[in-house]
Design a protein around this nucleic acid. Structure first.
Lengths: 339, 339
DNA sequence: CCCGAGCCGGAAATCGATCACCCGACCGGG
DNA sequence: CCCGGTCGGGTGATCGATTTCCGGCTCGGG
């Protein structure tokens, strides 16, 4: 037999009204904090609510108010690896921390399988949520563009690639962060600095590479770049390739920590000491930065802060604010053992 | 001005009916896949739905069906560090993979602040979701007990501590997993095997410790245990303490990978080579297991599988199945460099 | 003591989809 | 030729909370 929500008798507003000796409307006013109800009445209603353990029926309320009191966190990629990404975890923390004191609930939305964009879009267009936060890494197709044009308050984490309309977004200054990292390597006397870059279809990949290129060019050195995919395996491949092509490197800027762990491992296998022979700087300051030997010098992004800003901006947009510009945060170099 | 969901005109079932030249009931039948509608009619309705871009109003439906088509993933702890836990990430992946093809949405529920249990319980009791998956690590208070007694389909990840009523749960055999790890150390000729245990208020902590203790006792060796809290910092403290008290250890079983990374680091700082002088085995096979040097030999749990079973069981319970017993999965030793 | 202004509480319509029930048409058999 | 059964589809009540519009109560001033 199926579960019956009526078991135990979910009390309705009507029953509360009866018990408190007032009308439904009055109970509604109390529940929604209307100022024009006598204190005594409020007390009576609240007592009744307490006695019955009344909880407003969200569906009924949503039906008339046309608000669902829930926002979506959208991951428009079937590649559910993002969950394992410490960056995503941080965002999630920030978002949920900001949403917690609110009446809004967080709904997780993932593109179930490759190319099933429409399901996502339909859901969002269906008015099931009051707004959405898009956490996208790749910009390989046009989903982002479609999302941006939805008649729904939306904010992006990271400036979306290939989206023409202005959108609200929250991000760190990846270029500046990368510059800091490479400049630090320079300040340590490194002359031959290479970089393991991220995929060119992610802004994080592009911008961090750009920062590296700028500094290296300004210093009058030559570039040495290999591309990874932000995973440990990809980082390993890229590091091997980079070292094979440029055996004389004495400094490496790796576009994220996970790949950097692989870089450290490959260097160690090749008998090159870190940081004595080669200095390594990562990006993210994720958990893995402290699991390596030596620990990783890396560029910290205020992930949790990003997440909470994302939520704040979305709530503001839902409230009617007209926000359509990016908000950029600073990074910070965390010096540990690897450089 | 606040966002108006009516902008663009959300079509209702009524409008679809009008366009298709049928009644609301018929449209409803088509939408819900009733078999007793003529194919021609179905086609006409579907055409109208397509033209209007109709999406059923969830609130209205929920109001009458008394189902919300959403399930909660509950983290009854304000300590949002769980998000960074690769274990949690895996569970999340499994759950969302199973839920994706379903009409059910995933709602994330976190205890906003210490002691705010009531908010959670009220929400769950309020019929806002059809069921809940509880991902709890600690068993320090009685929230779990209260959750277990809620008139709502619920499944637990990991056998909850201190819950007297029988509940459905999914877990790995932590005792057996720990045994495998310690037996492997024995098979490598290790004689003085210590353990970094998890907190005693988590089943994972208790059971893994028990597995260690069993094997060590059976082999006639003495115990050497220090307690950590499953974080890298805690692992470092515990490792230092353990090594100070038992400098002659030649094998260490660490109750999770994160702490094991710290163990490796401390050993390296003390000039003890791994695995030559000391062998180390972790537990989880999380991402960090491959970021260390040497890479971590560890006990793999099928996390994603656990997550998807959690979701499957919950859907079954929502469907009326009467499940009140634990489901236990096996672990697997993954041999890498550290032992 | 009476009257009016201001407030507060009640009745009823409404949101959009579901579902129990009912109706009409068409078929075949007696 | 009539009647019952079947099948496709329509009608209207209903879910629970909000909200507008009013009616009536209260309280202060004259």
């Amino acid at each position: 037999m199926a579960f019956d929500p009526h078991a135990g008798g979910t009390p309705t507003l009507e029953q509360v009204a009866a018990l408190a000796g007032v009308s439904r409307a009055t109970v509604s006013r109390v529940v929604n904090g209307s100022p024009k109800v006598l204190p005594d009445t409020v007390a009576a209603v609240e007592r009744a609510i307490g006695q019955l353990g009344y909880v407003p029926n969200r569906a009924a309320r949503a039906l008339v108010t046309r608000r669902t009191d829930s926002v979506a966190l959208v991951v428009p990629e079937p590649d559910s690896r993002v969950f394992s990404d410490p960056f995503f975890a941080g965002i999630l923390r920030g978002v949920s921390r900001t949403l917690a004191p609110t009446s809004s609930q967080l709904v997780l939305l993932i593109e179930p399988s490759e190319g099933d964009d429409q399901r996502l879009l339909r859901y969002l267009r269906g008015g099931h949520v009051d707004g959405a936060i898009i956490v996208s890494h790749h910009g390989r197709d046009n989903v982002l563009q479609e999302l941006a044009q939805l008649p729904l308050p939306i904010v992006f984490s990271a400036r979306p690639i290939g989206v023409e309309v202005p959108v609200a977004s929250v991000d760190v200054d990846n270029v500046a962060g990368a510059r800091t990292a490479v400049e630090y390597l320079l300040s340590k006397g490194r002359k031959r600095i290479g970089s393991i870059a991220g995929p060119p279809d992610m802004t994080a990949g592009l911008d961090r590479l750009a920062g590296y290129q700028q500094v290296v060019a300004e210093a009058g050195f030559a570039e040495a770049v290999a591309y990874g995919d932000f995973t440990a395996e990809g980082g390993e491949q890229a590091t091997i390739q980079l070292l094979d092509e440029h055996p004389d490197l004495d400094g490496i800027f790796v576009a994220n920590d996970l790949m950097a762990t692989a870089t450290l491992r490959v260097l160690s296998q090749r008998g090159r000491r870190v940081p004595d022979d080669v200095s390594v700087v990562g990006f993210d300051d994720s958990v893995v930065a402290t699991t390596t030997t030596p620990q990783l010098t890396t560029v910290r992004q205020p992930v949790e802060k990003l997440g909470s800003r994302l939520a704040e901006l979305l709530l503001a947009k839902i409230g009617g604010a007209d926000l359509t510009s990016p908000e950029i945060y600073n990074t910070e170099l965390v010096v540990r053992g690897s450089a």
